[in-house]
Design a binder for these strands. Structure first.
Length: 421
RNA sequence: GGAGUAGUGGCCGAGUAGGUUUAAGGCGGCACCCUGCUAAGGUGUUGUGUGGAGUAAUCUGCACCGUGAGUUCGAAUCUCACCUGCUCCGCCA
């Protein structure tokens, strides 16, 4: 959520930045409602003050045995006026809030300007894709040949885009999860979290999935609960509504969870294999920090994710997302893309975002600033560290041998307890 | 799922025959004083949100006693619904 004061004081600047995302965006209607709202609020406040004083007076008069009929009638009328104004105030408040909740974050000045993913900027490349003499198989063919992912029966059990890992496939998936969590907790200093995978609408609103992206999520009919699309949601919202001590910051948290996405609008995209599933595993990194440190923490978080790829010896590149491709809540975002031979391209495997105070304002996550003594919003960050299913696919494709076997990366062997698939 | 009970400020904890209560008291925090240092003691101060005035320091209005609605001239106090915690019963991995 954008700061209404920022909008009020710098409307042109905010508009200019929003239009970098999408020329149709504008905060003008928010400004109009805000002006109306404040006017009504001032009127209502005055009347409430009047009523308060008169009511207190009635109390005193009654104690003295005086007749209060006339003044009671006056207060009653004032009360009716107040009610009208309050209804209006509430309505405007709601309108303004809805507009604010549906307005995306303003991009950081350093976010490349563009209208789509074609305008993303490559920042760096690591490793060299191998191009062996034999023909590299796609991971879905390797999975089927080795019977480590049963696509057909996964679909039978639920729907398309659900899959069933089995045997060494299930073991490899679990090995990857453990490797990720151990690296982040033991080497990068994150606290391990195992959160609920169903959360309420308040949490979903806090991180920005609601109200705009309800159709992307699975919702429980009977209750106010949604299946999480990412661990970002429960983990970021852990401190919802709280005021933290500045000493407690930065907070580093990591969580493995399954993630659930309806993938509405992705029909026909990545239909084969493990790249785009309705349910997939992911290890997420989440940070809460002070505004002064968020740029530096963002870089460190991105490096934590990159290090995983480097330890696995998977070629990747880092891309800065353009204003046309960046997520709703983010002000700056780096995607990490891993080399996938089946796509003959780099494919997203991690998305590391700095949200500034956008999510913190929605979720009301604050800290007490040591200098001012006043509460201020934290900055929130997160990134995949990494998407597990896509890592699984990348390993199969990049480490396959001519004889059809797959060599397991060295760092994973102590988790799989076998080294060739 | 059934029955009972509770939900007040950073924490503990008063306050219900409705009335000048944002809310006693304590702890903690902060500032100053006392003291050779420490400990102890003394004095004062102490929330959040949202408006208004002012360059600013600051001053000031309103709202907030789980959430929402209602009764009333007036609600922390009364009514209703919901949420959450605790206790007991039932069921259960």
């Amino acid at each position: 959520m954008l700061d209404i004061r920022l909008i009020r004081e710098n409307p042109d600047k905010v508009n200019e930045l929003l239009k970098r995302r999408n020329p149709d965006l504008s905060i003008n209607s928010i400004l109009e409602i805000d002006a109306q709202r404040r006017k009504i609020q001032a009127q209502a406040d005055d009347l409430r003050a009047k009523r308060k004083n008169m009511s207190q007076k009635i109390g005193v008069m009654k104690k003295n045995g005086e007749n209060t009929d006339a003044i009671q009638e006056e207060v009653k009328q004032t009360g009716e006026e107040i009610k009208l104004l309050e209804d209006k105030e509430q309505e405007l408040d709601l309108q303004q809030k809805n507009l604010l909740l549906s307005t995306p974050n303003i991009p950081d000045e350093t976010t490349p300007i563009g209208s789509s993913d074609a305008d993303n900027v490559e920042i760096k490349k690591w490793g060299e894709p191998v191009h062996p003499s034999f023909e590299q198989k796609a991971h879905w063919d390797i999975c089927t040949a080795k019977n480590i992912v049963d696509f057909e029966r996964g679909v039978k059990l639920s729907q398309s885009r659900f899959s069933l890992y089995r045997g060494k496939g299930a073991q490899l998936e679990r090995a990857i999860i453990n490797f990720f969590l151990d690296t982040h907790t033991k080497e990068h200093g994150y606290e391990e979290i195992l959160p609920p995978v169903m959360v309420n609408s308040s949490a979903m609103t806090g991180t920005g999935q609601l109200p705009k992206f309800a159709q992307d999520m699975y919702k429980c009919e009977e209750e106010d609960l949604y299946l999480i699309p990412t661990a970002e949601v429960p983990v970021t919202n852990i401190y919802q509504g709280e005021i933290l001590n500045e000493d407690e910051l930065p907070k580093y948290m990591t969580a493995y969870t399954p993630c659930f996405r309806r993938e509405a609008g992705s029909a026909g995209k990545d239909t084969r294999g493990l790249i785009r599933q309705h349910q997939f595993n992911k290890v997420e990194l989440v940070k809460l920090c002070t505004p002064e440190t968020s740029v530096e923490e963002h870089e460190k978080l991105t490096r934590n994710a990159e290090r995983i790829l480097e330890l696995l010896e998977l070629p990747y590149r880092r891309v800065a997302l353009s204003t046309g491709d960046i997520g709703f809540s983010a002000r700056k975002c780096f995607d990490l893309e891993v080399w996938l031979p089946s796509y003959n391209a780099y494919k997203e495997i991690s998305s590391c975002s700095n949200f500034g105070d956008f999510q913190a304002r929605r979720a009301n996550i604050r800290y007490r600033n040591k200098v001012t003594g006043k509460p201020a919003f934290v900055h929130t960050l997160n990134g995949s560290g990494l998407a597990v299913g896509r890592t699984f696919a990348a390993i199969l494709e990049n480490f396959q041998n001519e004889d059809g076997s797959v060599t397991i990366p060295k760092v994973l062997r102590k988790y799989t307890l076998w080294d060739v698939l």
